[in-house]
Amino acid sequence: MVIRTEGLSYSFGSQQVVKSLSLQVPEGSIYGFLGPNGAGKTTTIKMLLNLLKTDEGSIFVFEKELQTNRIAILSEIGSLIEQPAIYAHMSGRENLLNRAMLLGVDDARVDEMLALVKLSNAAGKKAGQYSLGMKQRLGIALALLSNPKLLILDEPTNGLDPNGIIEIRELLVRLTRDHKKTVFISSHLLGEIEKMATHVGIINNGELLFQGDIKDLEAISQPMIYIETDNVVDAANLLQRNRYEVANVNNDSLTVPYISKQQMGTVNGLLNQNGITVFAINKQHKDLENLFLSITKSN
């Protein structure tokens, strides 16, 4: 295990924000740390980086205890916490050069990182003038600068446009697949995590609701087919007669559990052939709220 915590707890005053957390992050994984805002994700991450002193429990990173091996462990971690911490009066390159100096990293690596996050052209511009997406990318470059074994990223796709999100996702997949890195990434978007994570931990109100392989999660967070038609009642009856389970019927839409693309096509054809006009049909993921309900039910 790259990260292993046991009974990790933290309180702000009398309010307990992290409750007896036991994380298991295997080597080479992309571990998606999923939870709504305020669930305790950032607090947990700050404890993993020794920025917050743990009230209770222990943290092992690379199978070494964090408190007693702080510097050795931190030298193998690259991190991005909340919004990227960037000196606005310095250029993007200067921000990286400053960090390279502190980490004892070769200056050549700075240009490599700028190219990697596609900031080479804006390298000389003051970082204060960067867009949010550019700042986020610079933050990722800063995290990757020391070529760390473990990347801890707190909501790294915040503020990125769809292209930027895809690029980051591909980069993280590449890092774990080709360079044997481990990535611990937090997010409040289930769809985001499902697209790249190999392992998932779900936290709500400071408690770990679920932890395991992404496949185990998929079993719980079954996607649905969302159908908008002119006649919802007839459509629901027709589908049920054809042995489809209709999960939800609303005024102008209904949902059916998703199995495969073929099945989605068959459902569409069936409705059309029976004179029901389909306005829209698409695959939908459960939102976090519904996922929490499913997890609580399955427990």
């Binding site: 920025l51 991190s79 916490i81 911490a85 980490l103």
Partner: peptide, 11 residues
């Protein structure tokens, strides 16, 4: 720059 957290998570 909100950099105390990065400063104190350096090795």
């Amino acid at each position: 720059a909100d950099t105390w957290k990065t400063l104190f998570s350096l090795p």
